[in-house]
Amino acid sequence: MPERRDFLVNAIKGLGLAATGGLAWSGFIEEGKSAPLILRPPGALPEKEFIASCIKCGMCVEACPYDALALAEPGDDKPIGTPFFTPRTNPCYMCKDIPCVPACPTGSLDESLVSDKDENGELKLNINLAKMGLAVIDRETCIAYSGIQCDACYRSCPRIDEAITIDYTRNKRTGKHALRAPVVHSEACTGCGLCEKACVTQKSSIFVLPREIAMGKSSERYIKGWDERDGERIKDVTEEVTTQTPRSGKSAIDYLNNEDF
C-alpha cells in the first residue's frame, strides 16, 4: 500500500517541520514578550491583554501631539510593533482630551480606564486616572535628599502636591538646615514621566517604572485600622476570627524561661 505509506511519511514530515518551525518561532516571541520594562500610553489594558489585542497600527503614535509615542521595532528589545514612550526624552504631557486613546481601533487603549462620571453622570475622559507607571526616587543620587535645594520634579509634576509632595525635615548632617525631600504617592502618580525629564542629575534620579515592577503587595489580612477606608473591610466582622494552621494547636515554645541557658 504505497499511497498510505506516502501519506503517513508526508504527514509526519509536515508535523515535524511544523514543530521545528513553531518552536523556533515561539522562542523568538517569548524572548520579546519577557521584556517587562515598557511604558504604555494612557488607558492601556493590562500588559498581557494589551499585547494580545494591539494590532500595531500606530494610530496612537500619530494622534500624540507631542510625538511622545513610538512603535517598538526589532532591536528595541520590546514587543515588536507595540507603542511605548521614553520619559527621559519624551514624557507624556497628559493632554486633557487624551487623543491617543480614542484613536485606538482595537480597544487596547481603553477609554473606560481613563474616564469617570462628571456632575451630570456622563462619562468623561480624565487623564488623572491614567496609570502608565509609577515614579520612583533613588534617594542616594537625588540631590534634594542630600540637602541641596532642588524641587525640579515637584515643580514639573502635573499633579503637584498630590503625586509628588515635599517632606520638610531637619538636616541632621549640618544641624541647621532644612531637608526638602520629594516623595511620590502611588495613588495619584500617573507615570507621565515629566519629573523624569525635569530631573537635573546626570542620569535621572526619579524615573518611571511599570507599576507591577515598582510596587509591592501586602496580604489582604493586614488592615490599617487607623485608615477609615481600609478599616471598612472589617466593619461587618462580629465574631473573633482565628487562623488555624498546623502549628496553632500546639503551645508556644518558651525556651527562654524553661530551658537551660
Binding site: 518561532w25 515561539s26 523568538f28 516571541i29 517569548e30 520579546g32 514578550k33 498581557k48 499585547i51 494580545a52 494590532i55 500595531k56 500606530g58 503614535v61 513610538a70 512603535l71 517598538a72 521595532e73 526589532p74 532591536g75 528595541d76 514587543p79 515588536i80 510593533g81
Partner: peptide
C-alpha cells in the same frame, strides 16, 4: 502565546511600519 504570532515576525509589518514610523532593526 497570547499574542498575534505572525504579526510579531511579519516582514510585511516590519516594512510598512518601518517606512511609516521609522525602522529599528
Amino acid at each position: 502565546l497570547g499574542v498575534a504570532a505572525f504579526e510579531w515576525i511579519s516582514p510585511i509589518g516590519a516594512l510598512h511600519r518601518g517606512i511609516i514610523y521609522g525602522f529599528g532593526f
